[in-house]
Design a protein around this nucleic acid. Structure first.
Length: 361
DNA sequence: TTTATTTGACCGTGT
DNA sequence: GACACGGTCAAATAA
């Protein structure tokens, strides 16, 4: 993928626009409690912000360079022109779910037909795959990521229905046992309203918003030109470091949230890494290394090469980053009542260690 | 070295 | 009791 000057300028325009939009949204939120019109405006801004991210991320995708020339053309109302999930996830499943022969069906808490079986807001670990009789595809078995740590017994099976003559195969997901791991507690459902600067009770948190604002400014500056944005000196966390070449953080497979949720090819995903306490963030492949301030990451060096602040061991205030994504990749169940905003969010959840990457289903 | 996925083997249940 | 089949385990493998 080659990035011409024109393409970079377009991307910069998008990102600058997004940054400006975020500043306006922040100002709006800082005024205090929002009335009806204020909420509408905030939601509209958030949606526009999501669109900006969507366009920017899409422009960074490799392949058709024409996207850079006309990124908007590739963006559909629901988000990025959706690839079939088959490009994003290991496909498994069958034509339809046959009634279980054995009496293990007890504990079934729900079933749903979905095009995005891996996006239900929970983290799952695959523990088995089985060819089912008279089924074209195998059935996949998942258990809650916290089945061991928290004794959560939640499981699910995913089976592709053989109505996949179309472009989007559908999957039947069967859930067994309720979650007891409190995953829902860490999922920022309030963020679906487009405002992640709020507490779990829905109140605006200025401190959190400030940090997010700074981080966004930092990321933007790094991507666009390496300049340190004004006010960044007060940033309590170091600026991000952009790696040009795709690589996974030390320690095994690195699940790619974007790869799963936005259809980004794993091999084309570069890594935007924030130094401790920020865990690495998967992001679309960066433009050529010559056009970006590429930093070598040296975990033993507490000072970022780009002049950032030493990594803090304090618990991070911002523990999530939200990526807009189209409905097929929404991590939230369709029946949820949280659809106050049209643009669903994929959520990358951070931990305070670089190595502990959550697998995001 | 760590961690998630794959996959063959094993187990439990229904017929 | 034998068999078939779905569900689960765990070693091997991959990243």
């Amino acid at each position: 993928m080659t990035f011409g000057q024109e393409a970079i300028e377009k991307l910069s325009q998008e990102l600058v626009g997004g940054y400006d939009l975020n500043a306006r949204l922040l100002a709006l939120l800082r005024r205090g409690p929002l009335d009806g019109r204020g909420q509408e405006a905030a939601v509209a801004m958030s949606q526009e912000l999501s669109r900006v991210f969507m366009v920017s991320l899409f422009m960074l995708r490799p392949g058709d360079s024409s996207r850079m020339a006309a990124p908007g053309a590739a963006i559909t109302e629901g988000g990025i022109d959706q690839r079939t999930p088959t490009n994003d996830i290991p496909i498994c499943g069958g034509e339809e779910v046959a009634p279980t022969r054995k009496g293990r069906g007890n504990g079934v808490t729900g079933k749903e037909i979905t095009a995005s079986p891996h996006s239900d807001g929970y983290q799952w670990r695959k523990y088995g795959q089985k060819n089912i009789q008279n089924r074209k595809f195998a059935r996949c078995y998942y258990k809650c990521m916290f089945s061991h740590d928290r004794g959560c017994r939640a499981k699910k099976t995913v089976q592709q229905q053989d109505t996949s003559s179309g472009r989007r195969p559908m999957f039947q997901v069967t859930y067994v046992n309720e979650h007891k791991c409190q995953q829902e507690a860490v999922l920022p459902r309030e963020s679906i309203g487009g405002n992640k600067h709020t507490t779990s009770s829905g109140h605006f948190d200025p401190q959190r918003a400030k940090l997010d604002d700074d981080v966004m400014a930092s990321c933007l500056a790094m991507v666009i030109g390496g300049a340190t944005p004004a006010g960044l000196s007060s940033l309590s966390s170091p600026p991000p470091v952009v790696r040009a070449s795709p690589s996974a953080p030390a320690g095994g497979r690195t699940p790619s949230l974007l790869g799963v949720s936005m259809g980004l090819d794993e091999t084309t995903v570069a890594e935007i890494s924030c130094r401790s306490p920020f865990a690495p963030v998967k992001a679309p492949a960066a433009p050529s290394s010559s056009s970006l301030p590429v930093e070598a990451i040296n975990s033993s060096d507490p000072t970022p090469a780009g002049g950032g602040l030493p990594g803090s061991t304090e618990a991070m205030a911002m523990d999530e980053i939200y990526f807009p994504c189209g409905p097929p990749f929404s991590p939230f169940p369709a029946q949820s009542s949280i659809h106050s905003v049209d643009v669903p969010m994929a959520v990358a959840r951070f931990t305070d260690t670089d190595s502990a990457w959550p697998y995001y289903s």
